[in-house]
């Protein structure tokens, strides 16, 4: 309870302080709008904000699902073949260390001219993939050597070995990586939309750009608020899942 109450109280205090400061010092709203103005901007265009948030969330979920599937698959391949790992791991590192902002224009040209969302998903996948691959690989390698011997002694099939030993061992690593990759997928999707600028993009990033172009700062903050909300939702969603699935482990 304390873990929920404390940040909520801190947030409420900040909002009150912000509101009082802006009102008391008469800060122009194109520099720092009051929280009440941001809230009003949000409520006034609620259907539009909702559809933009759904669009951003949809891109994030698609990218995260693709990153999870491919990350797990590649990690499994790495655990089965050192040659496969030695061949492909450097490419995965290249994907990770190359700034996504530099790759985004290329991806947009290749696949995003007629469908920005497709490019967004690919760019978000690019940034979300590596943490899952790296963590899952580490998880699969952290199998208890004694348990591995026990499975060999009882002649476990490869499927039994994966289902009963490798997957449960790697699960905490995967869940930890999902908390990181969830946020990264959201960032990747937003970056892609920023790079695309306009066109068919309908997500929150585009709403922020649009508001910025019109100096509607309260709308920019409203978009940021929703983006943070989605980020928090993803992070704490996975934290909750982690807590539920790993509740019996020390």
């Amino acid at each position: 309870m304390k873990r929920i109450l404390l940040p909520v109280m801190a947030f409420a205090t900040l909002m009150v302080f912000w509101q009082v400061y802006v009102t008391f010092y008469d800060v122009p709203k194109f520099i720092l709008p009051a929280p009440s103005a941001i809230w009003s901007a949000l409520i006034a265009d609620l259907p539009l904000w909702t559809s933009s948030a759904v669009s951003t969330l949809s891109v994030t979920i698609q990218a995260l699902a693709a990153a999870t599937f491919s990350g797990v698959l590649f990690a499994l391949g790495f655990s089965l073949s050192r040659t496969f790992e030695a061949t492909l791991y450097p490419f995965a590192v290249v994907l990770q260390v190359t700034p996504v902002i530099a790759i985004a224009p290329l991806v947009l040209i290749w696949v995003g001219i007629d469908n920005v969302e497709r490019a967004q998903v690919i760019i978000a996948w690019l940034v979300a993939f590596f943490p899952i691959l790296a963590n899952m690989s580490a998880g699969l390698k952290s199998v208890d050597a004694n348990l591995l011997e026990l499975f060999t002694l009882y002649r476990a099939t490869p499927l039994q070995r994966f289902r009963l030993l490798l997957w449960p061992t790697a699960l905490p690593y995967l869940l930890a990586s999902l908390k990181i990759s969830g946020g990264l997928a959201l960032i990747g999707g937003v970056v892609a939309e920023f790079v695309a600028g306009s066109g068919t993009a309908t997500g929150l990033a585009w709403r922020i750009i649009e508001a910025g172009n019109r100096l509607q700062i309260e709308k920019m903050f409203a978009g940021l608020l929703l983006l943070s909300g989605i980020g928090l939702l993803i992070f704490y969603g996975f934290a909750l899942l982690e807590r539920l699935l790993l509740r019996h482990r020390a």
Binding site: D144, N146, L147, L150, F151, Y154, R155, A156, Q160, L164, L165, P168, L171, L246, H248, R249, A250
Partner: peptide, 19 residues
């Protein structure tokens, strides 16, 4: 060398499960 994600009963029945 127990499986931390499995109950005592599931751990004890592992040899049978694998067979």
């Amino acid at each position: 060398a127990l499986m931390p994600w499995a109950s005592v009963e599931k751990n004890a029945s592992l040899p049978g499960r694998l067979k």
